[in-house]
Amino acid sequence: MGNGHRSGPRRRGHGGSAPHRSGERILVLPGEELPSQGLKPGSGTYRVGGKVYASILGLLSPRPPFVQVVPLSGRYIPKPSDVVIGTVTDVQGTFWLLDIAAPRWAPLHMTGTPWKIEVGETEQYLRVGDSVLVRVENLDPTGRIGVTMLGEGLGKLEGGAIVQITPAKVPRVVGRGGSMIQTITRRTGAQVAVGQNGRVWVSGDPEAILRVREALKMIADEGQRSGLTERVDSYLKATSPSGDAGIEEPARESARRDAPDPPFARPPTDDEPTDLDDADERPNDASE
């Protein structure tokens, strides 16, 4: 089962859209025997006496040559190159400990920051309670999580608010090709960063933050049904203080392209094109 039950085979390069997108989605529970027909036990499963059983609650997702279970709940299980939002829980001479909603705290070493820091000066840069956008760099078999703040878009998150959702819902918050997140930023004018660990940072005027929170709640509560982006869009449109906030169509256009998902989305501004500045980001698979 490797490092965690998310680490199954990658979807991308698997021939376009997901194989189970159209099919029936089967909920399985721990201990339930799975139809394995010659498939190997993948993540979220275990094998006893030639039979394969689910080890977690989730959706059955056969992905030959594996049969695996995709979790619907649970803590964030880190994957290398995931962009996550961490909160400083401890400051040491050369590093900070971040709570990234994973099973363990993640040390952020001072060399993993863009700042020139002398040993012992760490607290002048980040204090307990500060939030940062970082990237998971490496995982070792003992579960230690190494993170870095070096990379485009990464850094300290100043101001704003953080909303925690279940990590299983992150792909829905991002939407296909970033469509959902773009809808949200476009309609509210808020700046939003989504961590793969289920933390969403929202910055903007208080009214906008509240509306984003509501939208996130909508997604968390009924993220399963189709047409969600449209419904979130119309909700945000309806609650817009100025009547018709945002720009109507252009963002939708770019969402259709098979663009990789941005970890970071900003509302359109004058000096900056909305086109995703994500060139160096690994595409976080939206449909996982």
């Binding site: 997901a18 189970h20 997108r21 099919g23 029936e24 989605r25 089967i26 909920l27 529970l29 609650l57 959706l59 619907l72 709940s73 792909p171 829905r172 296909r176 009924e222 993220g223 399963q224 049904r225 189709s226 969600l228 449909s287 996982e288």
Partner: peptide, 19 residues
């Protein structure tokens, strides 16, 4: 026990859901 969990996660297994 199984039914309790199924009830809680029933929505997630609805067909046509966005994966």
């Amino acid at each position: 026990m199984k039914q309790a969990l199924r009830d809680r996660y029933a929505v997630a297994a609805e067909p046509g859901a966005v994966a």
